[in-house]
Amino acid sequence: MNGLTGAYVPGGSPLHRMPVGVKLLSLAVCCTALVLLPGLWSMGAAAAVTAGLYVVSGVGVAAAWAQIRPVRWFAVALFALQLLVAGLPTAAMLTSRLVLAVALAALVTLTTRTSAMLATLERGLGPLRHLGVDPFRLSLLLSLTIRTVPVMAALATRVREAQRARGVEWSLRAFAVPLVVSALRHADALGEALSARGLDD
């Protein structure tokens, strides 16, 4: 596992320094604009703006491609299908809209530290307080989860090895049942430890 660093590319560009809330808001505005754009010319302009933003951010081609790569086959299939059904202009519109939306969203991820993003999302969930949700407990839940991911990954590896030793390598059930039972034991021990430290009342 490559640690829990995320896709963030360190840098000092204006995009890196922009407040996270502003970035998220701009992303929402841009994605809405993409849907409303009237024709291929404006879509071309949007593509140029997106490319320009990537150049300004200085994240590099490799990092950008890694973000777009997952939708490449879908984009190709979509283009081919729409070309047959609706013709070239529609196919180009739809495909570039999808790719640009993914690229813009990825740009926010690439230029924002995961910790800063989490802090902003947490703040965004703050109003849930009025619905009776405890904000402290919510942030405890998020940080507990981040802390537990490597623990669960290690647990999965250990169970896999034990399974190999028992010679039932092929059985998914012989993998999953011990894994889930161990995970529950871990959870309940963790819960008791937290409650012993006075977090329950």
Binding site: R137, L140, L141, L144, T145, T148, M152, A183, L184, H186, A187, D188, L190, G191, E192, L194, S195, L199, D200
Partner: peptide
């Protein structure tokens, strides 16, 4: 809190 732990672990 016991369920916070369970939700986090899952």
């Amino acid at each position: 809190i016991v369920d916070v732990a369970r939700v986090a672990v899952f």
